[in-house]
Design a protein around this nucleic acid. Sequence first.
DNA 1: TAAAAAATCACGGTTTTCCGTGAGTTGAAA
DNA 2: TTTCAACTCACGGAAAACCGTGATTTTTTA
Lengths: 222, 222
Amino acid sequence: MDKILNIAIAEDHQVMIDGLTALLEEFDDLKVTIKAKNGVKLLEQLETHQPDVILMDINMPEMNGIDASLKVKEKYPKTAIIILSMFDDIKLIKECLKAGVDGYLLKETGIDELKEAITNVANGETHFSKPVAQKILQRKNKEKPRKSNFKPADLPLTLTPREIEVLQLICEEYTSNEIAAELYVSVNTVETHRRHLMEKTKSKNIAGLFRYALQHNLLLQS
Amino acid sequence: MDKILNIAIAEDHQVMIDGLTALLEEFDDLKVTIKAKNGVKLLEQLETHQPDVILMDINMPEMNGIDASLKVKEKYPKTAIIILSMFDDIKLIKECLKAGVDGYLLKETGIDELKEAITNVANGETHFSKPVAQKILQRKNKEKPRKSNFKPADLPLTLTPREIEVLQLICEEYTSNEIAAELYVSVNTVETHRRHLMEKTKSKNIAGLFRYALQHNLLLQS
DNA sequence: TAAAAAATCACGGTTTTCCGTGAGTTGAAA
DNA sequence: TTTCAACTCACGGAAAACCGTGATTTTTTA
């Protein structure tokens, strides 16, 4: 039971990678074997060898933590995933749960809980930060039906490349007119993309779109 | 010249504090003497003893890194400050420069550059990440005059408590009407606050407001 | 190659945001 | 005590966003 656990870190901030590594390697039974700056690179490295636990940031370029988790769980269902997120937004947590992650910690978490969570998920259990667990429990209550919204199943939340492009420009303070000019399409087209974006991200206005972009690491200049 | 440098870390994410500490203490000539979760706590601890270098995150609750830097430089002008930010937004960088910081690193930075930066600023020099330095140099070119905007000096960027309240609700997808109901004031009042917010933050729409809130860590649920 | 998904465009209508301008009240600091 | 910043309210107009509905073309994929 005291075998060494191999850890993968997927995280875009180099200081954070370095810091986490230094931190975890103070434990004799933990070893950081994989460091990746985004989901794509993580998957590449997983082909060589699989760790016991993956510490996954959500905000990563190229491929974010949620999409990466989905793919990892597809190929290596036995590998445990702990999400390390700055946000305890219920929408986001739900997406992660759906992706099959085994734990969800906030970055406010200290090393002690982190270590505990790693041990737990390595043993096949789950581990969620208190605030996160609370949100999960509360969620049923807060399901607020938005206008006439009786969609049977969940929407496919995947945005198309074009939609992402539009979303990014929206977050850069572009108006629909300006976006149309930038992308060489009609304003009507842009507005259609906007409509789809609002639906897919379940937003009510630009603030909601920005929030989504932020949490899924779609912002341009970041 | 080889004396031990005392470092302060001001950063709201506990894992990051722990990680940075573990990382820095691998160097014999660095010692982390202060750890603070926000600007207020940092200032409290500075009264006891001053470090040589402060590693300052921008996104902190209570008091953000910019305001904290201002106060620190007021009281302890000899203490060097390095900003550790996720954003290389020119607006933000300018605010930091105005606050008198000695360095500005992105969180993508690795440990090597971090160490180098610490040494540099401790020697009275400055240190800016490449992308940051570039933005600083480019800034003259990009000064885009906004409509009829010929303000002589810089506006006071400090938002009033009420304005912050309104801003936060805007970022929560509230409409002006909803905000008015929430705060028990007239819609006209809310719209006035909005107008002031747009001016002070130099925004063109909600996206700009959200960006400002994000970068100054004014978001509610984070 | 047929079906599905993505991207394109149109149009009319409602709501919200944005903008300018002006002004009264209040509490705190000079 | 007056000056000032913060907060409050009003109104009108323009611009942008939001919403519904429907439709064509292109690209991808099964």
